[in-house]
């Protein structure tokens, strides 16, 4: 069943996009910065998980370590790179972010070497059959993981005091500060969560491809931008749905439009069409 195969492959791809795009949309919602260097966290997650799995033999432990390390790196990026230039116009932060990303790519290369890294014994590589399909356990883990993590995050954002504090900081940073909400702490937390999710996505991509390489963040860097624009900037649930939709459209598009449109062009063609119909994105309000 080709249709089913293509649909599920699209969902796997979309789940990866979703995990990357969440951090981006949260940061944009909070600081109005297009955080391109976010894709560097994705690469960092890929490298760290491969390296730690090879060293320790435990994939789960390595995932946690990669997420934690990338989360801390995310906080450092905010503190060292963005916070000092928050009062400048948005393009200043954007340029800083692009520069930071390019620098990170080269640092990965200097540190881990130009050849990339592979698992010596890739975990979750057994496959299981559904109807006519065969999927790696890793691919199933990606879909289940993305939906579970992002749903949990949506609940936190919408239902808890922490989420309320976050939304308050987004809407009225000054007012939130006067009410005793520590803006910096909220921002640290957002960078931590977003970067950790991107690292998990990187770890899973490095697992499915069995390859972490310095440039692996290049495509997600701009694909995720398309997704958050599609979803309506700053919307968590919408980002998940837009990412999944884009994954599926790319999957079918690669096969049926591949001759005319590049896979990466499909994403942007879709974005343009959506923005013509709904200028604030699929889920954007107003």
């Amino acid at each position: 069943m080709l249709f089913l195969d293509l649909f599920v492959e699209g969902l796997v791809q979309g789940s990866i996009y979703a995990l990357i795009a969440i951090g981006l949309t949260l940061v944009y919602g909070l600081l109005r910065i297009l955080h391109v260097a976010h894709a560097g966290m994705f690469t960092l997650g890929g490298y760290l998980s491969v390296w730690a799995t090879n060293a320790s033999g435990s994939f789960v432990l390595s995932l946690l370590a990669a997420a934690l390390a990338a989360g801390v790196a995310g906080i450092l990026v905010y503190r060292l790179c963005y916070r000092p230039i928050l009062h400048r116009p948005p393009h200043v932060a954007l340029i800083a972010s692009i520069g930071l990303y390019v620098g990170m790519e080269e640092l990965f290369r200097l540190f881990f070497g130009p050849y990339g890294m592979s698992h010596t014994d890739p975990p979750l590589s057994e496959t299981v059959g559904f109807f006519s399909m065969r999927l790696k356990y890793a691919e199933i883990a990606i879909m289940a993981g993305a939906v579970a993590l992002i749903s949990a995050l949506a609940v936190v954002v919408n239902k808890t005091r922490l989420g309320m504090a976050w939304r308050a900081t987004v809407a009225e940073p000054q007012m939130a500060l006067s009410c005793g909400i520590n803006n910096d702490r909220i921002r640290d937390l957002i960078f931590f969560i977003g970067s950790a999710l991107a690292a998990l996505a990187g770890a899973m991509v490095a697992l499915v491809n069995n390859y972490a390489e310095p440039t692996m963040g290049a495509v997600p860097a701009y694909k995720a931008l398309a997704i958050i624009v599609l979803a309506g900037l700053g919307d968590v649930g919408g980002t998940l749905l837009a990412a999944l939709a884009l994954g599926v459209i790319e999957s079918f598009g690669t096969i049926y439009l591949g001759k005319a449109l590049d896979r990466d062009a499909i994403a942007f063609a879709f974005m343009i069409v959506v923005l013509m119909l709904r200028p604030r994105g699929i889920f954007g309000k107003g």
């Binding site: 080709l2 195969d5 293509l6 492959e9 699209g10 796997v12 791809q13 991509v205 499915v208 491809n209 390859y211 692996m216 290049a218 495509v219 790319e250 999957s251 079918f252 690669t254 096969i255 591949g258 001759k259 590049d262 896979r263 990466d264």
Partner: peptide, 20 residues
């Protein structure tokens, strides 16, 4: 016949079609 770009690392859709 199928095409892919040098940035592609995930071939799920093409592989599904080749399988077919």
């Amino acid at each position: 016949e199928y095409e892919y770009s040098i940035k592609d690392r995930q071939f799920g859709p093409v592989i599904a079609k080749i399988k077919d």
